[in-house]
Structure formats: C-alpha cells, structure tokens
Design a protein around this nucleic acid. Sequence first.
RNA 1: UCCCCAUUAGCUCAGUCGGUAGAGCAGGUGACUGUUAAUCACCUUGUCCGUGGUUCGAGUCCGCGAUGGGGAGCCA
Length: 461
Amino acid sequence: MTGRVRIKRLLEQGLVGTEVTVAGWARSVRGGKGVAFIALNDGSSLNGIQVVVDAALPRFEEIARLGTGSSLAVTGILTASPAAGQRFELAALSVTIYQNASPDYPLQKKRHSFEYLRTIAHLRPRTNTFGALFRVRSFLAQAVHRFFAQRGFLYVQTPIITANDCEGAGELFRVTTLDPVSPPLVKGKADFSADFFGVPTGLTVSGQLEGELFALAFSDIYTFGPTFRAENSNTPRHAAEFWMIEPEMAFADLAADAALAEEFLRYLCCQLLEECPEELEFFNRQVDTGLIERIRTVAETKFQLMEYGDAIRELQKATVPFVYPVAWGVDLQTEHERYLTEQVVNGPLFVINYPKEIKAFYMRQNDDGRTVAAMDLLVPKVGELIGGSQREERLELLERRMAEMGIATEGLWWYLDSRRWGSCPHAGFGLGFERLIIYLTGMENIRDVIPFPRTPRHAEF
RNA sequence: UCCCCAUUAGCUCAGUCGGUAGAGCAGGUGACUGUUAAUCACCUUGUCCGUGGUUCGAGUCCGCGAUGGGGAGCCA
C-alpha cells in the first residue's frame, strides 16, 4: 500500500496532527454506541496503535463488531491520547476491512500456553511473545553479521549437502534420489553409485571442516547457516534443524579463540540492550524476571576460565551429590556443567584443555600428551552454549590421532591436504543460534525460538 | 532411546472416598461505556486421549497404546 507507515515508526515520530495510513491486525476490538477502539498491531513493535472510530463513520456497526485477528487499514489523524495507557492514538477518517476474522480464530485475547501455540505455529507470530521473539531473532542474526563484518571476517557459505559422514558430530539425514521401495541393489545393498551424487550423501552436521579450508586462505572467516542432526533427542535444547555460527581464525590459538567468543557474546548482549529495550523489558516482565540483570552482567563482567583438571577438582570437593561420579578423564555431565556455571562462578565459564579421549579428532594435542586444546563455554540455564578448539595443524599428529580413533582418511584427503601445504595454527568455535536466543530471551524451549521447529516426529508447517 | 508426569468444554484448569461433570475466559443475546485482555446480566458448548480390564457402578483403580511436557543420554 502506498503511503502506509509502520506503527513502530509512527509511534517514534509522534507527529501529532498529521494524516497517516496504517495497516495491521486487530488484537482487540471494543465497540460501543458512540465510539469504538481497535488495538491494531502490524508486527513492527510490541505496542500497537489504538484506533478510535467515531460512530459517525460509514460502516461503524460493522467496524465495531470486527473479530480479533481481523486485517484492516486505517487512515486517520495522529492525536495525543486523552486517556491513560498510550501516548498517541489514531482518530480514524476511514477504515478499510480486508477480512473480518471469524470468531473461531484460535488466538484469543488471553494468555495461551506455549504448548498450545506450538500446535498453531502458523499463527503464533501474531502474539506478543512470538512477535517480540522473532524481532529479537532477526536483530541478533543481523548483529552476528555486523560483528564479523566489522572485524574483517569473510562470510562463507559452506555446503548443506555433504558426503562427510565421519565427523562424529551426530547422525546424518540421508539425501538421496534412489527409489525408497526398490533401490538399485549391489550384493543386497543400495547401490549409491547409481544415486544422484554417486556416493552416499547427507545434510551437513557442521561447516567446520570446510570453514577451516577458507580460514587457511582468508585468515578469518565465519559461517552462519542451517545445520542438521538426525539424533533422536527429545529435550528443550535440541532440534533436528538449527542454525549454527562457526568462526574460524588462522594464526590463532585457544586463548585467541576464547577471547573472540567472549567479545562476540558481549557485543551481542550490548547490542540487544541498546536496540531492543522494549522486547527485553517484555521478556524480563513476562518470561524471566532476572533476564536484563543477567545480560547486563554478561556484557560487563569478564568471563571466568577454568582448566578441565581444576573443574574436576572443584566438582570433587562439592558437597552436593552427583548422579554421575567425577574423576579425571570422564566427560562433564549436564549436572556438573550446571554446578560449575551456576554454583561455582554464577556466570559464563570457559572450561579448557579436556582429555583427548573425550574430544574430537581434529583438536590440537597439548604437550602434556593427554589433553587437547578444547574449550566449552558454559552458561547458567542453558549449559553448553559454545564448543570450540584450536585445531591440530601438524599432519603427522593429525593422521596418528585419526588412526587411533578409527576415522577413515579417504573421504577427508582434502582436509589433510590443508595440513600439507601452508598449514598454520588455527582455531574456531561453534555457537548454536537458538541456544543463544534462549539465553538472551529467557525462553526455555528451543521449539519456541525457531519459526517452525523440526524435532523427532515433527515437520509440520 | 531410558525414567518421571500429564491428557476433562474452543482455551486455561478444578473435579474430594469409585456414585454418571464444573469454573474462568472465549462464543451468543441484551445493557452500558473515552475504552485498555473493558464492565454487567442471561445463555450455549463434553468421544473426560484411545483401548481392554476390575466393579452393581470408572473422569477417578489396573494393563496396553497414542500424544504432550520435564529429566537423562547425544550435542550446539
């Protein structure tokens, strides 16, 4: 529509006395004899605008009885509101009804459970919570790109379809064009040489290995794209399709990696506090009362750093009982991570230098012969938010480690090549975008921070 | 995948000791109103998740299944 102004802008400008046109969806319609009020929202901000319709207007009876969710455009004069509750309101000169929503509109003028809203994910963006959430999500995505752009990082789009099946980062979704009922067979098994790519392929579980190749050409790079895991995980923190941010820096060690992660998180916190105060206040009020305080703390306090060995000692002297026993060499369980980040430091915590047996093959082996230069960033509520490492850049050590861990080298010849010519120290990390949003909004379920969540048995919408 | 909990009106939920189902909101009608998830009065709405069993009788007890949620594992 020509001349339409977004409600956010209209409220910010506050040009009382001017004639404007807005369009949106009615959140609430209160009709009377002499005047009707419409709370109109177009998604541009948490607050809508109150439209005041005088009974003298044509079709007043119809307008006053519009159902919640109706779509309309209103041309009117912006005026200072005489009543409490809003600074401005729109005195309607004309109202165009696109569609009067019928009374069975599933979103009522009341609080709904997140579980119910998940079943109407096609409509939930029209609610206050999901409106605020997806504005924050969009803002954070743009802030991610801004952060890396300002620091000269190259944005690389790594492939979504991959033939790497040996990264050990989770089960692959199979990508194939073979007939599922009767695929071509060789010795009783599907003949993938007849498949589209001529080899078994799947959806990527990580862009890291390809990201490393670009880091060894452009120095500093990052990826930000969809990631897929076919794990049968049923938790509030796991989805089969999620978005991951993976920076990779050449000529960098673990300390530089951790420094980048900290600077990155702090940047996002500051940006959010500065640019999305309305949304943050809403979440702080409705979802998680400690939210703003927590984000401020992250933005201002230096992150703690702890050696894996010290973490183990810290856990061993803890007075709380753990279900899983603690000893050097075991991986930290969720209960351990939460104790460390919530009880010991009460804030973000890097745990670094893990035993090599519990970490991936590509992580750089430390001089002690038993640990690798890995880091996990643990945060209260969420647990592991970031996982990263300095990569093993020494060809012989990498090959030996792959052999020890039973990783086939054939499919990864190109990865090994990167260690053959011009190899150098490099490091990077992966950050789950949805987990970041959970952390920065106080929402508790990953299914409520992604538009249309994909989890076991759920691919609707 | 394992463990625990839940499933009752369109939504949110109550339902006592096993005796045949209720509230608020939504919706309808009317009144009233510069209102704020408006208010007031009256009214409508049920496969009590499904299935089998125990019982004179099951929303309620037991078995099996489905779905949802939480915890765990896997991980971001």
